[in-house]
Structure formats: structure tokens, C-alpha cells
Design a protein around this nucleic acid. Sequence first.
DNA 1: TCATACTTTCAGGATTTATTGAAAGTACGG
DNA 2: CCGTACTTTCAATAAATCCTGAAAGTATGA
Lengths: 171, 171
Amino acid sequence: MSGGLKDAKGRFVRTWGDMASRWGINKTMARVHALLMAADEPLSTDSVMGELSISRGNANMNLRALEDWGLARRSSKGGERKEFWESEQDVWNMCCRIARERKKREIEPVIGALEDCLKEAGAGKDAASFRRRTGELLDLVRTLDFVLGKVAAQEKNAVMPKILLLLKAMT
Amino acid sequence: MSGGLKDAKGRFVRTWGDMASRWGINKTMARVHALLMAADEPLSTDSVMGELSISRGNANMNLRALEDWGLARRSSKGGERKEFWESEQDVWNMCCRIARERKKREIEPVIGALEDCLKEAGAGKDAASFRRRTGELLDLVRTLDFVLGKVAAQEKNAVMPKILLLLKAMT
DNA sequence: TCATACTTTCAGGATTTATTGAAAGTACGG
DNA sequence: CCGTACTTTCAATAAATCCTGAAAGTATGA
């Protein structure tokens, strides 16, 4: 591997980690993900540890988290007992998985909580403006939930191309 | 204010803070924002401090951060020297502001960094698969950037209704 | 110009979150 | 079954992040 390529992969890993941490995702998890994406073949836990200078426990934890998100899978190499890991390679699929998980983990609970707020506020006149504003917000969050659901629902992404056509037509 | 309404507002504030912190946004900033949204009139820094049990410095810092994001504005009450704060009230506008800021702060830099990765990887054969995957990711991020740009560009949201129609037609 | 009423800053402390590493667990081949 | 090669867990520790509060700054009206 040329120096340039190695540096480029390093930069890629750092970039992905930094972005993720700004969106509330563990930086190391994103780095591991980036490392798997950049690799030309499945990597062992030990390679991940070595490349990122992280402990075994940390590597293991984040690899399993990626598995939970559907972003990485275990992959056995012929004959070897050791586990190897590879990333989902299709970026649109990746996007679907992320949409699905964030919808489930972070949007749906908010919808429930906002509904509880409305219930708790009661029907009184003093709550009228709070009900209106909370209701509008709830609509917004439900819309976001709906869109994420659509994105998450398909394996090969059929939604984005259509949305893009629509948006591009709008100027 | 009835107990129910007060509790409902409290729950609203906590909900908003918890959601924000999962998306990489300061929890207190989101709580302050929620407090302003739930309030029927502009609030003073002291009210914010009192309601959320936070220090003056913290309240001031987060109110100014909300101002930077375009989510809150200063509002003078007749005759009083003190500053009062109010939230943007239109949820779609709110959405536009957030889209604009996150695009600027967190998507655009990533596009630059990924472009640098491609440059750094060079044209060699050993980098071919890395170039392909990075390029696909770059496309995805550029698409996201484009969509956020569209959402951010308009004050009254004209994009979402159309997207929703499209998505609903898809079943 | 001064006293006052407010806002801003920032070093140090508190809290939350992430990481380590060693011990415990598991499964495989012989 | 046993030894080995690996994986998983989790209590302790480290790192990152956030918050406080007192001191410095600023604007206003008399």
C-alpha cells in the first residue's frame, strides 16, 4: 500500500469519526465502521485494535454495536477460527439501516413523549397555546418519522432518486 | 397555571433536551429552547435560570447559542431595561434554521474532507476500490447536503408537502 | 460623570461518557 | 473431556464535556 493511500484511509477514518460524534454517535464506533469500509477485505478484531490503537474490549463493544445497527457483519475466513468483520458496502443500504435505527431509537420515543405532554396538559383554556404549539411540533416529528420510515423500508433505495428529481425541478 | 399544564411543560422540556442530546446537541440548550417554545410570552434570563435551575453563565451561553442558530431572539419588553427572549414559533421555520446550521457546520466540512481523501489516495491501481467506495459516500453526502440546502432555503416550507405527497403515493 | 442594573467571560470544578485490561466465559479440535 | 484460541464482560480509570459563579465589562439615566 502506498503512503498516500494509507494516509488517505487514515484521514477517511478520522473524518467519519468526527462527523459521527457531532451527530451523537460514538466516535470510535464510526472509526471502526470507516476502517471496515475502507478495507479491501474483512478485518479481524486484532487488526481493528491495531489500526485504531484501541483496547480489545473497546473494539469488541463497537464491533457488536455496528452489528446491532446492521452496519457490519461477521465473516468467517476459510479455515480460520478467528472472526473477521466486514462492513455493509452499499452506501444506500447503509443509509437505510441508519435511518431505521435512529427512527426506532430516537424518533418514536419522542412521539410517545409528546403525546403524553398533550394528554397531561389537559383540555383547559390556559393550555390552549401550549397544546397548539406542541401539536405542531408533534406533526413535524411524525412527518420526519414517516420520511425516515420510507427511507428505511427499502433495501435498494428507490425514494431518494425521486425526491431528487422533484427538488431539482423546483430550482 | 394548573398543575397539569406545569407538569406537561416540564415533561416537554425534558423530552426535547433528551432528544437533542442524542443528536449531538447540548441538552441544556435544547431545554432552554423548549422552555421558550412552551412559554406564552418572552422570558428573562432570570426566569430561564430559575425554571431550569441553571447558572447565569450557563443560561447566557445557551441563549446566545440559540440566537446563533436563529432559534431564539432578544425581545425588549416596554420600559424594562432587562432583555427578554422568545423562541421562533413556526415549527417549519425552526426546521429550516436547524437544517441550515447543520449543513453549514457539519455536512459541508465533511464534503471537503472526503474530497481531500480522494485527492490524497492518488490515481494508483491499489487505491481503485477505496476511490470507488469513497466516491459513493461522497455522492451520498452531497445528496444529503443538497436536500438540506433545499429545506434551508425557504422560510415557509414548500418542500416537505411535495415530498410527502410523493412518498404517500408510493405506498 | 457616577451609580446602577444588567450582560458576558472564563478558569476551575462537576458530571457524563468512553476506554481499558484483566478475569470470566465459550466453543472448537483432538 | 481437556487444552487452546478466541470472545465477552465489567469495575476501575481516563477523557471529554458541561456548568458554575465570581469578576470584569457595558450601557443607561440622572
